[in-house]
Write a protein that binds this DNA or RNA. Sequence first.
DNA 1: ATGAAAGCGCTAACAC
DNA 2: GTGTTAGCGCTTTCAT
Lengths: 340, 340
Amino acid sequence: MRATIRDVAREAGVHHTTVSRALNPATAQLVKGETAARIRAAAARLGYVPDALARGLKNNTSMTIGVVVPDLATPIMGQVVRGVEDVVMPRYVALVVNTDDDPERERLQLEVLATRKVDGLVVASARLHTPQIEALVDSGLPVVLANRRARGAGISSVTSDDAAGVAAAVEHLVALGHRRIAHISGPLDTSTGAARAAAFRTALTEHGIEPDDRLVRTAKAFRVGEGERAFAELVESGEQFTAVFAGNDLIAVGCYDAMRRRGISCPEHVSIVGFNDMPFVDKLWPPLTSVRVPHHEIGRQAAHMLLAQIDGRAEAGSTLLLPVSLQVRESTGPVERVAP
Amino acid sequence: MRATIRDVAREAGVHHTTVSRALNPATAQLVKGETAARIRAAAARLGYVPDALARGLKNNTSMTIGVVVPDLATPIMGQVVRGVEDVVMPRYVALVVNTDDDPERERLQLEVLATRKVDGLVVASARLHTPQIEALVDSGLPVVLANRRARGAGISSVTSDDAAGVAAAVEHLVALGHRRIAHISGPLDTSTGAARAAAFRTALTEHGIEPDDRLVRTAKAFRVGEGERAFAELVESGEQFTAVFAGNDLIAVGCYDAMRRRGISCPEHVSIVGFNDMPFVDKLWPPLTSVRVPHHEIGRQAAHMLLAQIDGRAEAGSTLLLPVSLQVRESTGPVERVAP
DNA sequence: ATGAAAGCGCTAACAC
DNA sequence: GTGTTAGCGCTTTCAT
């Protein structure tokens, strides 16, 4: 059995509440230095480790936060979670749960977190409409969305500046002479999917290009397979296009697969731009032009925002957009001029 | 304030211990069906959620397990953790901590987990010699190593069958005519680094090739930069070689970088084999030949083993080796015959 | 400066 | 079948 505060008290010859005072930095000055030293020595001798659960029961806090992600196995999510942990540890530990972007699974996982009485939540799996999360926010639980936003006001979020990223991507393609630019968006019920699709239309318009819905496809998920499927659809529709702006890098990789299968070469026939700049896309062939999103920093900032809410230093409802940067590589090139 | 068991008791007109019995599946049959129904209804009406912390305090369990990884932001670690969570949830939640392969940080993080009274530990960051972990095992805490092993007996582990993977890789290279095969190993204080390096010597010998230490370099970490550095060292040593067996895929990617910089082409001049088959190495140029390791399954099996120990269904000390398979791609090719 | 008493929410052992 | 009692390890009054 591990030592408790009472064991330490016996060892040091004091009352157990004195031990509590001596070992808690916030109340340590109430205890005479000499006594405190004796207590610390006794604690060390017994290998005493405070029990966070018992403390939490008394203080009505678990000193844990929940982190809700679509899938931890995904390359970017590990970075977000790592960013969160870097900030909250060791004061809080993170309980990470996966939703697979499935609302029912999300409901179950949030229930698990409720049972654990988390003191706050970082949610990276939000859909635009999330009654569950909103209910938690209304109940007073500190919540910060990371990497995604929700429609309702009053929910804090930290995301990349998607609109700026899309504008830079489109700008780049237009400068290379592209006019027939297709878009394979992510799911439209995610903020990343919807925001990038909307920004895409806006960016085209600003360059005097009429948005053409026949050049837009929607991936049902941010997955390679969906990118491949959507690209194939575009080709089979018979529409002409010289570039694809993909909703994220996985979709872009799906485009690569579809192109390879059909003997379409990149960027000679079709230029591709991705989004996220996830690890190793610079090592693909061709190296992928992509909008870099600072995922680790998104996690860090979301955690800071959450701590501020927990400590009452900030209200809910702020929105933080982190800057992005276009990484130009070899998957984008000038439009090949067909001989007239 | 959220509802407690006493609120439910008042609402249902029973004693709070009866509520406890009715709501706990293990004791529910002690309660009359009708009463139980009334209690469940009251609980639902009040939105009662049991408090896992309070339950744990009483039962002397936290219903959490610790997962110790080198770095969650790394592509393969997310998969391992995901595998663990898929098995233990929702009974246990996972507390994930990062060590950055730094022993001091590991010590701190283990202390955090001790404070949280985790019921078991999955450790994916083990070094060969890990007194800390051994002490925990000796203290009776269920521990399973995932992806890495330790030297001492008595610690359970789930890893890939590294020796078999190395043998397959060397076999493949020898079949292509390679004799001067270099190896850039991972850190030798990790089991993965050491086991693969040892298996490499063995495999060469079995093919009648005398191991040559001048063709072996050690990366200080499983990182791209270290792979690049070690490859450069090999080239500058002036030793001739036609293939490199890399300690893992990150090191292999480092080789790619070094080769590109020097205008050495793969596989024409030098063939490269990686280890792990992490996501998207099949999309690199050239697509990387690599030994596939089932990381998600390693996490799952480690979790199963841990639960078995926790439940007293198994002793500590088992070793599970999961099968690997060589994925042959385009980074390996026949030795170019120099004109005689 | 330290001790005593009470209680956080829950469950297990024991009555009745 | 249900109520009573006690206590998990800790912190926070309050008293001395």
